[in-house]
Nucleic acid binder design. Structure first.
Lengths: 353, 353
DNA sequence: TTGAAAGCGCTAACAC
DNA sequence: GTGTTAGCGCTTTCAA
């Protein structure tokens, strides 16, 4: 049934779609060869002004567009970038993290601006090999991966296979792949310096420090405390799951432990917000009794009550940086990992007044 | 330079990428023809068990994957869906609306589940024709468009051209395209019924009722008021821009007008949150003096303070519904527009207590 | 059971 | 300037 004459597919009565126009049709209608049409549409100088205009006119009036698949195949080119967001197999977690979604938006904007298409896929984080599938099958010429998690080794393997890939995340030792990420250590320092300046001394840290980025933020936390001559109390480190109830659990664990604290530095804005809510339920006031600093500066942080002090990750710049690094890689050039500056955004949640 | 022998591209010294493996290579290595490889990889019964296993083994060990572009061209198939999010040319607005981003995530999940790829593109809302580009060029077999805005006519034109397209939005008269949307009228009614039940009578409406969805929500607002025998005061209708300052402006306009109000029904959660903040600055307390109901039930609404009462739009179901309707359309079947149920989620921002 | 050959829709030598 | 021809990487008749 394939390889039949190029007749309309009338074997399928329901699909009343007229056969798609192709270059040969335009050529026939214009009384020229397909080569001429191809050249005309490409704006080649090899075809006379007159014919070119005529053909373009014709194509436009018939709403003919070149079949990109065929063109790509022939030209061995492609202007599609893959964006992969791993998901956790166990929690079957949906794509709802506001920071990741924001990054997706930022990448969409950056790619659109440069005339690239964006192919989004989700893969099981435990099968990160699959992240390269759109590249292996030739659908995309490179991949941006959002969500480094704990998959350093698998990412290294991809890079070793020469898959052009750029990862949003932390720069780690023995890293073969290119990362773009925020300056997490400085981010941690900024947060803690600020809290110290506000007179806080018992600063809890909420986050899973096994995740590279969070680990670095904790390192910044420690460094700032040490520099200020404030001891680091391991009791103040509270590991937090990424579940919606994480913030509540963390606050309750802290209370259960009976450790005194007058501030929280949370690994994400979402976590900070959940924590503030949990504390409110327990009669703890922010910032009066506990000052809170979040991380990311997602859009809603400024609308929160109290408006959230946070470490801003430059998400628009991040999108652009990820894309430009990837394009370097694709061109066969070096793309050094880079850290984007993080900044402290002071709002009410941490102000002692 | 093209059409050269299939030798490695060593004219480009920087790109050390070994030539991509292709079927012919596997065939040669296995000592069979490409036809056999093709059949083996497709799991055809026409090839002997033994050869098939041998070839699959070989392909896997060499990490060979079929070039999908070529396969699609030959088979005239394609498993990619386009998701288009128009942007406002004037404001050059970035993709950051939490509800749209959430929808993007939901679509990604739904498509992944069904084994489709998602090609995301942004187009100028004033050139909605461009939304069909990925379809016209054969990149995708259908399009989901998020953001109906005021572009009813342009969308109708696309549908008239037989572009398989499904739009998230309101169902309008003389509509040629398929929409999936929340039940906006009921949403408006639910919100207002609830506020009335809480004893509020002077309910302001924040939103641009020229947008179809918002207009319907306002219609629901009016219907609920009338049913309760409460008059509709046009002074209470406040048009709001989609700028970040929209909430603030709306609140201030209401105060400037000097109209009394004891409740606000906002066209989106974001708007509700901004309004609550603006009121706080003006010494108005929520829900004490003013009860507030939002719309969408974005993830952060429950973390807001006070937790936001809102009309929930079922975003996960929406993603699935959009996709299944589109697939119907692609199969040449009818896809009636549908409304998904909206529900009232009562939280603190509207409770009189 | 396998291979040779044609062709999906396009582009680019190469000839005229 | 324009047409002829070959071929991008794959699938599928058709013949053996």
């Amino acid at each position: 049934m394939a390889d039949s004459k190029p007749s309309a597919d009338d074997s399928n009565p329901s699909a009343a779609q007229q056969r798609r126009l192709q270059m040969a049709d335009i050529a026939r209608l214009a009384g020229v060869s397909t080569s001429t049409v191809s050249r005309a549409l490409a704006g080649s100088k090899l075809v006379s002004e007159e014919t070119r205009v005529r053909i373009m006119e014709l194509a436009r009036s018939l709403k003919y567009t070149i079949n990109i698949g065929a063109q790509n195949l022939r030209m061995k080119q492609n202007r599609t970038i893959g964006v992969v967001i791993p998901y956790d197999h166990n929690t079957r977690q949906h794509l709802s993290d506001p920071f990741f979604l924001g990054m997706l938006g930022s990448l969409a904007d950056a790619l659109t601006e440069l005339g690239f298409d964006m192919l989004v896929s989700r893969v099981d984080a435990d099968e990160l090999d699959a992240a390269a599938a759109p590249f292996d099958t030739g659908r995309v010429i490179g991949i941006v991966l959002i969500g480094q998690w704990r998959h350093h080794d698998q990412l290294n393997q991809l890079a070793a296979r020469h898959v052009p890939i750029v990862v949003w995340g932390a720069q780690l030792p023995q890293q073969l792949y290119c990362t773009v990420g925020g300056d997490n250590v400085t981010g941690g320092e900024l947060a803690v310096d600020h809290l110290l300046a506000e007179g806080r001394r018992r600063i809890a840290f909420f986050g899973d420090i096994n995740l590279p980025e969070v680990g670095l933020r904790y390192a910044g936390y420690c460094r700032a405390l040490q520099r200020a001559g404030v001891g680091i109390d391991p009791e103040l480190l509270v590991p937090v799951s990424f579940l919606p109830s994480g913030g509540q659990q963390a606050v309750e664990e802290l209370l259960r432990r009976g450790v005194a604290f007058d501030a929280i530095f949370a690994g994400s804005d979402l976590l900070a917000m959940m924590s503030i809510n949990a504390m409110r339920e327990h009669g703890l006031y922010v910032p009066g009794q506990v000052a809170v600093v979040g991380y990311d500066d997602i859009e809603l942080s400024s609308y929160f009550h109290p408006p959230l002090t946070t470490i801003r990750q430059p998400i628009r710049e991040a999108g652009r940086a990820l894309v430009t690094s990837l394009l370097e890689l694709i061109e066969g050039r070096e793309a050094p990992s880079q850290q984007l500056p993080t900044t402290l955004v002071v709002r009410s949640s941490s102000r002692t007044v």
